[in-house]
Deep mutational scan, measured.
Amino acid sequence: LYHVLGLDKNATSDDIKKSYRKLALKYHPDKNPDNPEAADKFKEINNAHAILTDATKRNIYD
């Protein structure tokens, strides 16, 4: 999941948040209406963010 956000395992919560915002804006379906690959990437980014920002889920993942 870290690679989805372009981060390593030592990433801080701020790093995760910044990377998520940058990538979410880039791949958001509203910005890429005719690109199904961007929509899939956006879903991956959201999933990675949801797990890595939840301390319990992140510990389980790590």
Results as ranks from 00 to 15, higher is better:
Tyr61Phe: 07
Asp34Glu: 12
Gly6Leu: 02
Tyr27Met: 09
Tyr27Arg: 02
Lys43Trp: 07
Thr12Gly: 03
Lys9Ile: 11
Tyr27Gln: 08
Pro33Leu: 03
Ala48Val: 01
Lys17Trp: 09
Tyr61Cys: 12
Asn46Val: 15
Lys9Glu: 13
Tyr27Val: 02
Asp40Ser: 15
Thr56Gln: 04
Asn46Gly: 11
His28Asn: 02
Ile16Met: 01
Tyr61Asn: 09
Lys26Gly: 04
Thr56Leu: 04
Ala39Gln: 08
Asp54Ile: 00
His3Asn: 07
Tyr20His: 14
Glu37Gln: 14
His49Pro: 04
Ala39Val: 13
His49Thr: 08
Thr12Val: 02
Leu7Glu: 07
Ala39Thr: 04
Ile51Phe: 06
His3Phe: 08
Arg58Met: 03
Ala50Asp: 15
Val4Ser: 08
Leu23Pro: 04
Ser13His: 03
Phe42Thr: 09
Tyr20Val: 07
His28Leu: 03
Leu52Phe: 07
Val4Thr: 09
Leu25Ser: 05
Lys31Thr: 10
Glu44Leu: 03
Asp54Pro: 03
Tyr20Ala: 14
Lys41Gln: 06
Lys57Ser: 06
Phe42Leu: 15
Lys9Thr: 07
Gly6Gln: 04
Lys41Cys: 02
Lys17Arg: 12
Lys22Asn: 09
Thr12Pro: 00
Lys18Leu: 10
Asp54Glu: 07
His3Met: 10
Thr12Met: 01
Ala11Gly: 03
Ile51Ser: 08
Ser13Gln: 05
Phe42Asn: 08
Asn32Tyr: 01
Tyr27Ser: 09
Leu23Trp: 04
Ala38Cys: 05
Leu25Tyr: 07
Ala24Ser: 14
Ala24Met: 13
Tyr20Glu: 15
Asp34Val: 02
His3Pro: 02
Lys26Thr: 09
Asn46Leu: 10
Asn47Ser: 08
Pro29Leu: 03
Ile45Met: 04
Lys9Asn: 05
Ala38Gln: 05
Asn35Thr: 10
Ile60Val: 15
Ser13Val: 10
Ile51Leu: 10
Asn10Ser: 10
Asn59Ile: 12
Asp8Gln: 13
Asp30Ala: 14
Asp54Thr: 03
Asp14Arg: 06
Val4Glu: 05
Gly6Glu: 00
Lys22Gly: 14
Asn32Met: 10
Asn46Tyr: 06
Asp8Trp: 01
Leu5His: 13
Lys9Tyr: 10
Ala11Asp: 03
Tyr2Cys: 01
Glu37Trp: 10
Ser13Ala: 11
Asp40Asn: 07
Thr53Tyr: 04
Asn32Trp: 09
Asn59Thr: 11
Pro29Met: 05
Pro33Lys: 15
Ala55Tyr: 04
Asp34Trp: 00
Glu44Asn: 09
Arg58Trp: 02
Lys57Asn: 02
Asp8Arg: 04
Pro33Gly: 14
Asp62Lys: 01
His3Tyr: 03
Lys17Gly: 08
Lys57Ala: 12
Lys18Val: 11
Ala55Lys: 13
Lys9Cys: 08
Ala11Leu: 00
Val4Asp: 04
Asn47Arg: 10
Val4Lys: 01
Leu25His: 04
Phe42Val: 09
Ala11Gln: 00
Thr53Arg: 10
His49Arg: 13
Pro33Thr: 11
Leu5Met: 06
Asn35Ala: 09
His49Cys: 05
Asp30Met: 11
Lys18Asn: 06
Ser13Trp: 06
Leu7Met: 05
Lys18Cys: 11
Val4Gln: 02
Lys17Ser: 10
Asn46Thr: 15
Ser13Thr: 14
Ile51Cys: 10
Asn35Glu: 08
Asp8Pro: 14
Pro29Tyr: 05
Asp30Ser: 14
Leu52Ile: 02
Asp8Lys: 03
Tyr61Ala: 15
Arg58Asn: 11
Asn59Ala: 15
Ser19Gln: 14
Asp40Met: 15
Ile60Glu: 15
Thr12Glu: 02
Leu7Trp: 00
Lys41Trp: 05
Lys57Thr: 04
Lys17Asp: 03
Ala24Cys: 15
Asp62Cys: 00
Asp14Tyr: 04
Lys31Trp: 02
Ala48Leu: 00
Ala48Glu: 05
Val4Gly: 02
Asn59Ser: 12
Ala50Glu: 02
Leu1Val: 06
Ile16Trp: 00
Ile51Gly: 08
Ile60Ser: 15
Lys57Gly: 05
Ser19Leu: 02
Thr53Ala: 11
Lys43Arg: 08
Thr12Gln: 02
Leu52Arg: 03
Tyr27Thr: 10
Tyr20Met: 05
Lys41Tyr: 08
Asp62Asn: 03
Arg21Ala: 15
Thr56Met: 06
Asp40Arg: 15
Pro29Phe: 02
Pro29His: 03
Val4Trp: 01
Asp30Val: 09
Ala24Asp: 02
Asn32Gly: 04
Asn32Cys: 05
Leu23Gln: 06
Ile51Pro: 10
Tyr20Trp: 15
Ile45Thr: 09
Ala39Tyr: 14
Asp40Gln: 12
Lys17Val: 13
Tyr20Arg: 10
Thr56Asp: 11
Ala24Gln: 11
Ser19Trp: 00
Leu7Pro: 08
Tyr61Trp: 03
Ala50Ser: 14
Asn10Gln: 08
Ser13Asn: 13
Val4Tyr: 02
Asp15Asn: 08
Ala39Trp: 14
Tyr27Ile: 01
Asp30Cys: 08
Leu23His: 00
